[in-house]
Design a binder for these strands. Structure first.
Length: 351
DNA sequence: CGCTTTTGACCTGCGC
DNA sequence: GCGCAGGTCAAAAGCG
């Protein structure tokens, strides 16, 4: 799948940042209604410059002003070009990783046909090594995690029931680093039945079973990320055979929709969805006081055992928000924006 | 008292 | 066959 489809929704509207300029009629507005895939063709619209026809002697001043605006237009275009290049690099990295994933899956499938070597530990090792590779390709912030499903491997030779049983989903949740508990509230009821320190991670791994329905086969493993101790990584195995205990609570498990702040996200993570990273440490400013739901959701590519799909509208919307968020967090971008605004403000204040 | 959590022991599968 | 590591069991402890 080409990234252009989900990029198309990532338009930016920066016009509100300049609202304070509207009073005097000299408004510099940054907007972008065109699809981002065309190169973030941010346009500078110079609105009507009100002139007093009686003040003919001010015309040289207006010419100067037009020159300044043209200069700003050039700067904005330059900034736009840089952003476009950044975006291109990001997308190229994404496609590159996706290509690597496909190669890996092709190899894994062929290995399975030859030697039937789909052993659990091997798969996990592959996933881990893949994760390590991907960790060096971090883009758009630190929210990169993988999700995986072994459906693809299982589909060849294993019995159907086993394939269902092996349905695996990974969800990473960012929590406070000081929070040492391995409790991940996802709307379901879990009973902890074990804890183990694994070899590759000094942080203990907790084992949970779904206790809401006695017959529910779903298990989950929760462990802190080796690279980022503030990240809780939950691995869900199987599918719930019952409805979520409460519709009010967010459910992060397989095939469940959940809320991210004010944004609802329907993530079919188990079989085809991308990995989701949730940031619980930074509540949205506009959310209610009781709202402790995650703020950010980022997607990425890093699945070692599945193809990714970004075609859900909700996910595209979230991606757009994430991209906008990343842009606004970029010091270069904000500096350029501030310069443009302050330059405009300074200009109008001299009038 | 009943449910949940903790934790050491045990089981199972893989690599050598 | 043996050792290792991950996963599970189950008794004990904790808690409301």
């Amino acid at each position: 799948m080409d990234y252009s489809t989900w990029l198309s929704s990532a338009s930016l509207d920066l016009s509100r940042s300049n609202d304070h300029n509207h009073g005097n009629g000299n408004t510099l507005r940054l907007f972008d209604d065109s699809p981002v895939r065309d190169g973030l063709k941010t346009a500078i619209k110079v609105e009507t410059i009100q002139t007093n026809s009686n003040e003919v002697d001010r015309q040289p001043l207006i010419k100067d002003e037009a020159g300044v605006l043209m200069e700003e237009l050039k700067k904005a275009n330059e900034e736009n070009r840089r952003l476009t290049e950044m975006l291109t690099v990001v997308c190229e990295n994404y496609n590159d990783l996706k290509r690597q994933l496909k190669d890996y899956m092709t190899k894994a499938a062929s290995n399975e046909l030859v030697g039937n070597v789909t052993k659990k530990r091997k798969i996990e090792n592959s996933i881990n090594s893949n994760n390590n590779n991907n960790s060096s390709n971090k883009i758009m912030g630190s929210n990169i995690v993988e999700s995986s499903s072994s459906d693809e491997e299982d589909s060849c030779e294993k019995p159907k029931e086993e394939a269902v049983k092996a349905k695996i989903t990974r969800v990473a949740v960012r929590t406070e680093a000081s929070d040492s508990t391995l409790i991940l509230k996802d709307g379901y009821q879990w009973r902890k039945y074990g804890q183990k320190v694994t070899r590759d991670n000094p942080c203990p791994r907790a084992y949970f079973k779904c206790s809401f329905a006695p017959s529910c086969p779903v298990k989950k493993k929760v462990q802190r990320s080796l690279e980022d101790q503030s990240m809780l990584v939950a691995i869900y195995e199987g599918e719930h055979n019952h409805a979520p205990p409460s519709q009010q609570e967010p459910a992060l498990g397989p095939n469940r929709s959940f809320n991210l702040g004010s944004v609802a996200c329907n993530a079919t993570l188990a079989s085809s969805g991308p990995t989701v990273t949730l940031d619980l440490t930074k509540p949205k400013p506009s959310t209610t006081k009781n709202d402790t739901t995650p703020k950010t959701l980022s997607s990425n590519n890093v699945s070692s055992a599945q193809l990714l799909k970004f075609d859900s509208p909700e996910f595209q919307k979230l991606l757009a928000e994430q991209m906008a968020s990343s842009l606004t967090k970029d010091p270069n971008f904000t500096a350029a924006l501030a310069a443009a605004i302050s330059g405009r403000s300074a200009q109008t204040s001299t009038d």
